[in-house]
Computed example of a mutant assay.
Amino acid sequence: MREIVYLSEGKLSAFLPEPRLAVPTIKLHAGVSMAGINVESPATDLQRDLLRHLKRVEKDLARRALSHLEPELAPGRWVQFEAPLSWITLRGRFQDLVLFVDPPPSPPEAGVTRRLLLHGSARHLSGRPPVQVDGPALTDLEGGGHSAGKLFVTQAGHVLAELARAQGPLGPDAQDDTSPGPAPSLSRAGIRDLLTALDAESTEVSTSALMIGYAKVSALLPATATEGGCLVASPLIVEYVN
């Protein structure tokens, strides 16, 4: 039995069958959660249609999606991933944004690898609530070219704002994300600051579990001689490896 953690109905509905393989129109309704379906229990006609469509989409992606570790990736490409991931939401302004992140290499100097950071809407989550953390400092009172006492948005704050914008309207009253925004414009320093803050929250208790799924690349942070890279992507589906 599949145990789905996250499923974006908006991304699922964006996959349309070719005319020669036309099937009845699939309408995804707000409030109908695919992620909450138990595939071994009796399902409604709508749920069965959604499950069949999900299987068709996954079959198509299995043929063409590359591994998230492949060197030749670019924004807009679909990838398949298998990695230990923690999933969290942030307190405050970005509480409706969910982040999945893999653990840092241990020890830190062990190999120059590529981290995985997934961003999505918390309304597509199923099951237990994610770990909620304070996250990075989003604003600061010091320097930054501003006079003393003025707030400015930190690099990590810019990254979170861009990721939230790419998800479209968030929150419980938002409509389904059938039309996600453009790929976010992210800075190297901002991604590094965000990963550092998320890693600091997970030093005492590990919440990561092995997960698989498909995601669309938002941005790729290349590795350097001293730092690993990071693939930032928005998931279609995330599920536990059983």
Rank of each mutant, 00 (worst) to 15 (best):
P17A: 08
P17Y: 13
E18C: 11
E18H: 10
R20N: 13
R20V: 08
R20C: 14
L21R: 11
L21M: 04
L21E: 11
L21I: 15
L21K: 03
A22G: 06
A22T: 12
A22C: 05
A22I: 03
V23R: 05
P24Y: 13
P24T: 14
P24D: 08
P24Q: 10
T25N: 11
T25C: 00
T25K: 01
T25D: 06
T25I: 01
I26F: 15
I26H: 06
I26A: 00
I26Q: 03
L28A: 04
L28F: 05
L28K: 00
H29E: 00
G31T: 02
G31Y: 02
G31E: 04
G31V: 07
V32D: 04
V32R: 11
V32L: 09
V32T: 08
S33K: 15
S33W: 15
S33L: 12
M34T: 15
M34L: 12
M34V: 14
A35N: 13
A35F: 02
G36N: 09
G36P: 02
I37K: 03
I37P: 00
I37V: 05
I37D: 01
I37E: 02
N38Q: 15
N38P: 12
E40A: 04
E40P: 10
E40S: 07
E40D: 08
S41Q: 12
S41P: 04
S41E: 08
P42K: 13
P42A: 15
P42R: 08
P42C: 07
P42I: 10
A43N: 14
A43S: 14
A43Q: 15
T44G: 15
D45L: 08
D45H: 10
D45I: 05
D45G: 08
L46M: 04
L46D: 09
Q47V: 10
D49Q: 06
D49P: 13
L50M: 04
R52G: 11
H53N: 11
H53S: 05
H53D: 11
L54N: 02
L54K: 00
L54D: 02
K55G: 11
K55I: 07
K55C: 13
R56I: 14
V57E: 04
V57W: 12
V57F: 13
E58F: 13
E58N: 07
E58I: 03
K59G: 08
D60K: 01
D60G: 02
D60S: 01
D60E: 03
D60V: 01
L61H: 14
L61C: 10
L61P: 12
A62R: 11
A62L: 07
A62S: 13
R63T: 10
R64M: 06
R64C: 05
R64Q: 09
A65E: 09
A65S: 11
A65M: 06
L66M: 08
L66T: 06
L66E: 10
H68Q: 03
L69R: 01
E70I: 01
E70R: 06
E70T: 02
P71T: 02
E72R: 07
A74L: 03
A74H: 03
A74S: 01
P75L: 14
G76M: 12
G76V: 13
G76Q: 11
G76T: 12
R77A: 14
R77P: 00
R77D: 07
R77H: 09
R77Q: 12
R77I: 04
W78P: 00
W78I: 06
V79T: 03
Q80V: 03
Q80S: 08
F81R: 04
F81K: 07
F81P: 10
E82C: 10
E82H: 04
E82W: 00
